[in-house]
Every structure is written in C-alpha cells, then in structure tokens.
Design a binder for these strands. Structure first.
Lengths: 181, 181
DNA sequence: TCGTATTTTCAGTATATACTGAAAATTCAG
DNA sequence: CTGAATTTTCAGTATATACTGAAAATACGA
C-alpha cells in the first residue's frame, strides 16, 4: 500500500469497520479509496494503491456494484472501466439504508409474518408469537417512518434533523395548528 | 436442536442475520431464544435447546452481556445463572443503537477529527479532507439527532414516528407557532 | 474449611471466509 | 473476423473465526 498518510488512515479504518457491516476488508478499503478520490479509478489503480490481487479487486468492485455503492464511469478514449462513488453523501446514506432494508429487514418481516400466522400448539408458542408480533410492529413502524422521511428533500430533512427533539414542542401544538391552518 | 417449529424458525433466522450484524450464529441464536422465552434460561437449558457446546454458550452469553443485550436474573434457591433479555423492546433498540455508537461511530468520529486536523501536503489530500469533513458532519448530525430523540419518552416517540413526514407540515408553521405560544 | 456445583478459560481443531494466480470469457479497435 | 486489452471466473490455498473438550477457576452450602 502506497498512499498519502491522511488517506491511508481513513482507508485502513474503513477496512476494519467493514467487517462490522457485513463487508470484508478488501471491499471496505476499495470503497473508502473511491470515496476520497477526486477522479474515478480503474481496477489497476486500485491494485497499485491497496496491494490486493487483481481478481480480489474485481470481486470487491462487483460486490460494491451489487450494493449500488459504486458506479461505472467511463473516461473518453479509454477502454478501462473506471469506478466512482455517488457525489452526494445523502445519496450514499439512502443507498445504504435501502440495501439493508432489502437484504435484512424485508426477509425478516416476511419470516415474522409467516410464523405469526401459524396456529400455536402450546402456551410457549403463543407467547413467542406475541413477542414476534411486537418485533414485527416495531420494525414496520420504523421502516414506514423512514419511507416517509425519505420523501422529504435533503435541505428540508437537514432542517428537521437539526431541530431534533424540539420538533416535539411543535407536536404539542398539533391540534391548535389544525385550527389555524 | 429440539424446539417447537415456530420458535425454531425464528431462532435459525436470527442466527443467519447475526452474521450481518457482526455477531456470530451462536450468539444470534442464543439471543433469539432468550427473547422468545417467557422465563429466563440457564446455560444448560440453552445447550439443550440449541445443541452447542457448553463453552460456546458461555462465550456467547458473555458477549451478549458485554453488549448489554442480556442480563443475569437469579431464581430463588437455584445456584445457576439465569439469563433474560430486556422486557421492553424499545429498551432493546436503545441498547443496540448505543452499542453501535460506542463501538463504531465514536471511534470513526475520533479518527475523522484527527485526520482532518492534519496539514494537507497535496491537492489530493486537501480534497480527501473535505470529503472526510462532509462525512464527519453528517455522522455528527445524525448522532446528535438521535441523542435528542432518545430523550423523548417512548409513548410520545411512537406518536412522532407515526406522524412521519407529516411533521414536515407542522414544521412549515414553525415561525407562526412561536408567535402564538 | 472442604467438597461439589457451576462457570470460565484456553489450546487445539474444525469450519467458513478471504484471497490468489492462471485460465476463460468478454470487449472492442482495426 | 482477428487479436490485443481488459475483465471475470474459479479451483486451490491461506487466513481468520467459530467451536469444542478438558482442565482451571470460582461460588457457595454445609
């Protein structure tokens, strides 16, 4: 690995963090490198920067592409494939959430719904189903909330976030407001 | 493994899901089992239910305890250690978030802050630092927001969540409201 | 304090995952 | 269509992680 120290620290950190997010070191480092890079990079440049094998880099890029975290960007008069990340960091967050939802939340909700349907054959199973129902409702509420929030454009979303719990003060006046508006 | 089908499905699912959350199959299954159980369970009961070795279960419980996901619950006149999960699912969510923050978010913020401080020695590094600053600010905003929201009690939080993006309509009247209240 | 029930530790082993090099497939200019 | 440039695949190997059994440590009643 042969990178400016500032970039190297970041890349290594994300390599480690990746493992906590279900992606491996290679993938984490590749993503970090692309995120920091001003221009899109091709596979050979990534190999030079990170010191992984060519095939490992290809696999990493393929995985990142399947998660919609990197995109192909061609450079005129160059046959090589160049890869870059989304420019807007909010798009990145939205993609990350969407991926997790598709891969983890939805299958879990499906499993919960199907198991809750089953006729319980003991008190123990009945209790278990109640707990699953509770979990199901919570997950559904959070995903519904996220879906709603995701419709709000970035600038307004930032304002809402910055207000934080202060929004609660507004909420108290909900009924009053309806009268006025 | 010898469990009622309803429970087994859930337990196996969480075993698989665990790997995406940085916990292994054993730990995922143990947690799922405890979550569904009406009474706290001791290590031997978990061994019987899941078929892992005694030591593997001990390690799993230790890890879950270190994440504050399970707690020791003693049963009168029994020397064994019994383990159970939090009763309120919102407490579970709060603990999960808190853990991730402590283990992932805070170290990342620290790393970012320190690297951003460095004097850039090239245009490339300068650009990288700007991207890191952007990421830092986003993460900080989200954690600040979460911290604020975490202060709101559960019932009111649920109301806020159910309102979802409708809160945005209230937000439009923010200034008007100040005049009234 | 002793002895037994119980939990924890840890070295060794099994299993799963990551990584590589070589070979196959694809792409595309001429 | 040909052949060079480039990417992708995949069987084999290396590495990391999970899991086990036996032994050590701990907790506690008598």
């Amino acid at each position: 690995m042969n990178l400016p120290p500032v970039i190297q620290t970041f890349v290594l950190h994300f390599g480690e963090m990746g493992s906590r997010w279900g992606i491996n070191r290679t993938v984490g480092q590749i993503y970090a490198l692309l995120y920091l890079s001003e221009q899109p990079l091709n596979a050979d440049q990534i190999v030079d920067a990170l010191g992984f094998s060519r095939s490992n880099v290809a696999m990493g890029l393929k995985e990142l592409a399947s998660m919609n975290l990197v995109m192909l960007k061609h450079i005129p008069a160059d046959r090589k494939d160049y890869y870059g990340t989304h420019d807007d960091i909010w798009d990145i967050v939205r993609n990350l959430v969407e991926e997790r939802r598709r891969r983890e939340i939805e299958p879990t909700l499906t499993m919960l719904r199907s198991v809750i349907m089953e006729k319980p054959s003991s008190e123990q199973e009945k209790h278990a189903q109640e707990k699953m129902q509770e979990m199901h409702d919570l997950i559904e509420m959070l995903t519904d909330w996220y879906e709603e929030m995701n419709k709000v454009d970035t600038e307004r979303l930032v304002n809402l976030l910055k207000m934080g719990a202060k929004i609660y003060n507004l909420y108290q006046f909900k009924d009053k407001l309806k009268l006025i508006s």
